[in-house]
């Protein structure tokens, strides 16, 4: 993740008129065990419906607050944009940070169930925004159980890309229901994804990869994108390498299994 650290230059300091460079949060203070029970009632804050969602806290440059006065510097009018990319189980947010500048016009949201990890990503994004004015205002994170509450945040066909990078493998057979890709959950992903939208999956666990491929292949609303087509997709490189897990696998010289699917209409 070292390459994400912005270079501190004298000019930059000057440009910020003596403001201190915001310190990026350190991951070691935000560690949390890698698993969470997705079936239990966490104390989650979610809107009744997408129309009830106040996005101004996440994207202050794109959304005016729903109620009450705007915070200093925040916009007073919505930019008209909606979140289009969702990184499900975004972990430490490496993909969001990488894609933020690749797709500067697109709003992206990471969803993560672990409190501390969410806190880390949040602080990191705030620090990046401070250090690079005008950038990184298109990415944000929410603590959320995406298996339960996606339709509370996103309207039908709102998303164009969904990312499932190095998800919890839930090795035990009786825990397979807790996996993030299941036949019934795929129908919910198809609901929030527009036709033509893409699901990106990657794992270093071959069994899990085969599981995801099996269920995506079997689902009537998804069709696999051939590898040669993926070569032109600017997101794929980051799907492989931008996340903490991806880099860890790289260091350990492990395999990474990628599978991407396009959302199609039912025949």
């Amino acid at each position: 993740m070292q390459n994400d650290m912005p270079k501190i230059t004298g000019e930059k300091r000057q440009a910020e008129e003596g403001q201190m460079e915001a310190r990026l949060p350190q991951k070691k203070y935000f560690r949390q065990r890698a698993h969470a029970n997705v079936f239990s009632d966490h104390h989650l804050d979610y809107p009744i419906s997408p129309a009830h969602m106040d996005w101004s806290k996440n994207f202050p440059n794109h959304f005016a607050p729903k109620e009450g006065a705007a915070v200093d510097g925040a916009v007073v009018k919505d930019s008209g944009k909606k979140v289009e990319f969702a990184d499900i189980g975004c972990g430490y947010g490496g993909l969001l940070v990488a894609l933020s500048t690749v797709f500067p016009e697109t709003l992206m949201l990471g969803m993560e169930i672990r409190v501390k990890v969410e806190e880390y990503v949040n602080q990191k994004i705030l620090a990046l925004r401070k250090n690079h004015p005008g950038s990184y205002d298109n990415i944000s994170i929410l603590r959320m159980n995406a298996m339960k509450f996606l339709p509370n945040f996103f309207e039908k066909h709102q998303l164009s890309k969904m990312f499932f990078l190095f998800p919890d493998p839930h090795f035990k057979k009786r825990k397979h229901k807790a996996r993030i890709i299941t036949p019934t959950l795929l129908s919910e992903y198809a609901y929030v994804l527009r036709p033509g939208g893409i699901i990106y999956t990657i794992s270093d666990v071959k069994d899990l990869h085969l599981w995801m491929v099996k269920h995506l292949d079997a689902h009537p609303l998804f069709v696999r994108i051939p590898d040669e087509e993926l070569a032109d997709d600017p997101a794929v490189e980051h799907v492989r390498n931008a996340t903490e897990e991806g880099q860890k696998v790289e260091r350990n010289k492990g395999d990474k299994y990628l599978a991407c699917y396009r959302r199609i209409n039912d025949e």
Binding site: I48, P151, K156, P183, P220, D266
Partner: peptide, 20 residues
Amino acid sequence: DEHIRVSQYPKGHNIETYCL
């Protein structure tokens, strides 16, 4: 979890909408 879901029958993978 407060959801009401409308899906096609019997092809339940086609979710029409939610009543939230």
